[in-house]
Design a protein around this nucleic acid. Structure first.
Lengths: 174, 174
DNA sequence: TTGACATGATTAGTCGGCTAACTATAATTT
DNA sequence: AAATTATAGTTAGCCGACTAATCATGTCAA
């Protein structure tokens, strides 16, 4: 994602908004800072996971499986929930199966389907990773109060709703 | 980046925090929502830029050049400011030069150096893209008040400061 | 029942990012 | 002055994501 190190200074913002009157400087600042902090958080998460030999994609698969009562799901469902394409999910499952963290269980009734099952070792891996991840996240967020978290969620929700406007400005038929 | 579609439900959060007492459910919720909204925004930005035949990386290079008074900079400086590796910057410049949006200017004094210069066509491209981008962003952020933007910036700043804790929990010598 | 379509997973091939290694040039040290 | 080290940019090769196409299987309708 975006990992622009060099956010625009006040001088730069003025220079650009002089040339482009559409510019909303406080919107630009918040937008860029949001993307940058999110990118930094994502990289910190990567660093944490890599200490356990995991990447985000594979980690999410393990978590999604653990969420299920029977610790099983289908590749297509996992792809949907993880927000990756189905071929990508095939690759993630290949890697996890190689490390014996999940296993493929072939469906007797519909031979097109393959259930993915979290193994004992997969659960053990999560039991290593999750406490570490949760501890770090707790520390990282410690300075943000509960009120601020609620406020943040509300703002993020508004932004989320605003994305449709980003995709299609003024509702133009683009 | 993270584009998890399926954020944890209340039930899932309780299930996980029962097994992992380190979990701070409100921290988890805010963290995941932040990453997801940022990812969605980044994809919306990609969609906007692609309508102008650009990708984020190349677009940033054009912007960074426009920020300079003489519309010039060095590949290594651009890489630093854009937050990509130098080989990646070489590739970005290759592409932009192919489309004649920038040009390489070889340094007479230090023959190792190559200045990258925004061309007229590069400026023209920005003059197409930036008003569109700024208009969309303005709409997207319209529902977020100035006060909320300030608040958001403050929270993001705290989060940014907290990332060091994510990298090295309790200051352990990891 | 069989031909057309739908569905689930995978393979093939592309793309943009990265690290490590390389070339050329400059600066520094002895 | 020569040898060493540092710096700037690039090349080579890898990795994880994607799309498009493929294979196998199941479903539905004529």
């Amino acid at each position: 994602m975006l990992q622009l190190r060099d956010l625009p200074s006040q001088v730069v913002l003025e220079k650009f908004s002089a040339r482009y009157p559409e510019a909303d400087t406080s919107a630009i600042t918040s937008f860029l800072q949001l993307l940058r902090v999110a990118s930094d958080l994502s990289m910190a998460l990567d660093a944490c996971l890599s200490q356990h030999g995991l990447l985000q994609g594979r980690w999410w698969v393990l978590i999604l499986l653990m969420r299920e009562d029977n610790h099983m799901s289908l590749p297509s469902v996992l792809a949907e929930k993880a927000g990756v394409s189905r071929p990508t999910m095939t690759g993630l499952i290949d890697g996890l199966e190689r490390e014996q963290l999940v296993e493929r269980v072939f469906d007797k009734d519909d031979r097109r389907k393959v259930s993915i099952k979290l193994t004992e070792q997969g659960q053990a891996k999560l039991d290593q990773v999750m406490p570490d991840y949760y501890s770090r996240l707790r520390l990282c967020m410690a300075a943000v109060s509960e009120d601020e978290r609620s406020l943040l969620n509300g703002i993020l929700h508004k932004l989320d709703a605003g994305i449709v406007a980003f995709d299609a400005p003024d509702g133009a038929g683009l």
